[in-house]
Nucleic acid binder design. Sequence first.
DNA 1: AATGAATGAGTTTTCATTCAT
DNA 2: GATGAATGAAAACTCATTCAT
Lengths: 189, 189, 189, 189
Amino acid sequence: MPKLGMEPIRRAALVKATIAEIGAAGSLDVSVSQIAKRAGMSTALAHHYFGGKNQIFEAAMRHILRDYSTEVRDALATATDPADRARAIVRTNFAQSCFDTATVSAWMAFYVQAQTNPQALRLLRTYQRRLRSNLTHALRSLCDDPHGVADILAALIDGLYIRAALTAPDENPERTALNVLTTLTKGAA
Amino acid sequence: MPKLGMEPIRRAALVKATIAEIGAAGSLDVSVSQIAKRAGMSTALAHHYFGGKNQIFEAAMRHILRDYSTEVRDALATATDPADRARAIVRTNFAQSCFDTATVSAWMAFYVQAQTNPQALRLLRTYQRRLRSNLTHALRSLCDDPHGVADILAALIDGLYIRAALTAPDENPERTALNVLTTLTKGAA
Amino acid sequence: MPKLGMEPIRRAALVKATIAEIGAAGSLDVSVSQIAKRAGMSTALAHHYFGGKNQIFEAAMRHILRDYSTEVRDALATATDPADRARAIVRTNFAQSCFDTATVSAWMAFYVQAQTNPQALRLLRTYQRRLRSNLTHALRSLCDDPHGVADILAALIDGLYIRAALTAPDENPERTALNVLTTLTKGAA
Amino acid sequence: MPKLGMEPIRRAALVKATIAEIGAAGSLDVSVSQIAKRAGMSTALAHHYFGGKNQIFEAAMRHILRDYSTEVRDALATATDPADRARAIVRTNFAQSCFDTATVSAWMAFYVQAQTNPQALRLLRTYQRRLRSNLTHALRSLCDDPHGVADILAALIDGLYIRAALTAPDENPERTALNVLTTLTKGAA
DNA sequence: AATGAATGAGTTTTCATTCAT
DNA sequence: GATGAATGAAAACTCATTCAT
């Protein structure tokens, strides 16, 4: 009895398995074989549904970004005023989920991939554009140069994140970022 | 044709070739075979002089960090007052040499490696400690909380660097960083 | 051309090829590549089915021991009284099949491997335990110290085998062993 | 100042190192590089003095056999009557020195090599001929068939040695062999 | 007498991918 | 829809051997 409509289920399973394996390996050095095994299917099927290893990875990356976007949107939805919106964006970027081994690995892999894989570069740009746009919007009424301050905060968030994720897990990057937010908005936030 | 004392020459050639290959590949997915060929020798000799692939990579990473450290030291040597020292540090981090394809790739590879390779993590920490220490020292007389400001600036530098290197080559990260430096030191810088 | 259920076929082919190669080489200095070629498949497939070189060897060793055990069992089945059983055991150990080049090589390789490979040591011990137990059982009613005589006969069999296999192919080790058997059982056998 | 007459010193050092390495490895899987390092010289020199790996091994084998022969000769020299001579030969074959890891490994390696290396086969035959001849001589006045009994004892010694060396280090092979000697000489020994 | 330099050929092992069923 | 079978290509690494010095 051939099952119908398996495609989305299989694809989701593979994406999930890919992220898990990346997390376990700490890098993209993960074989299709490992992914397929974790997803409970043959490598041939993985290829059938995605066409190749790169496409599996791309789907996983997209998935991670989509998750991230959803979290940001949810956080923004509960915020009541501009200052709150700005703080919510900052907080989302340092939520526990962002420090999952798999997420960290995927993020670092993004940076590597972006140098050679146009698809990955596009995704990374999408993320950065969205972050900047969200921040600019929130800062509009809080300071004179929302664009400029958004650029600063966005870079600061990335820099603090890398340090916290890789080399300084004990620090409190969220507080630091919020402090800078306050400073750059002259307390308006 | 000198036949003795080849070891340092070969090692240097391999390190140089490694960095070049990393730059060309945009990642650490580079084989000893490629490196050895570019360095003009057999893979056997590469293994003979370094013992293994990892050690070749480590030597290359150390080389990059040493170059970076030298540039910082030189820049600091020409600075005349604290504010100048702080600005010099910032500028060095956005010098042209930092945006060589090979350097960018190595830097991103660092982030990936740091998650699983203790040696790489140690090197990354060394870099970050040094940057923070240099900044703190320069900021001592320029603001109330030199440690805190140094942390912010260090993270900001990393974040701006990644963006400039990967996704926004046209912007002027140096100016942005210098502006923040001025703001956080209340113009004292 | 059957395409399913190849695993047992391939494994058997590899074991057979391994024994043949060991025989041809006269030692365990045999590459997976040689084995796979003789078995008519790629090295990748050999690894796929066995996991690694050591496991291929282990399977081959087990196969040889299993063959030997079968021969002993068959010989014992046709014996009618204790004395006959004892003589059957001795004869089996000097049967033509024991002097196949491949078998001899595998046996000598066993001795070498036993020094460092616990798996090989275990197999060797299994063989020796079985031989001793079979002999003891057969000798029970034939002499006062079946255990002691079994130990002597077992060692004698091994010693005579090595000499016949390696350095004295013309002698008649079987007769010598049977003579000792007669002497030590005071003619009861 | 080129040293003269180094050849015998170097050769002896290499032979000693070879035996030590074989003992450490438990097999002949020992590289010239390891041997040369242990002997304190370059691989090139090892080749210079011996011509190749096989010749180094052969020299090591010859050395082991020479040592063994010396021990037998010394033991025979102190014996006073035929029975004592026979017992001395047996004892020498189970002396502590015969159970050194290196000696055991070399001995097992002999068996393997004898199958393909004529040189090794010749050495092995020399050992066996000598053992048989020594035993026959000692047994001449102790039993009716000294040749036959010598063959039995020689094989028994080898068989007991292998078992003691590889799989049953706790047993007392010497006593067993001496018992058989007594039996086969009807107590004359 | 001695060695550092160098390599070609070979080792085991892994993997993305294809295909017949 | 799903998979076992199969492989070519490549990876890292090792080693006996040669040669110029």
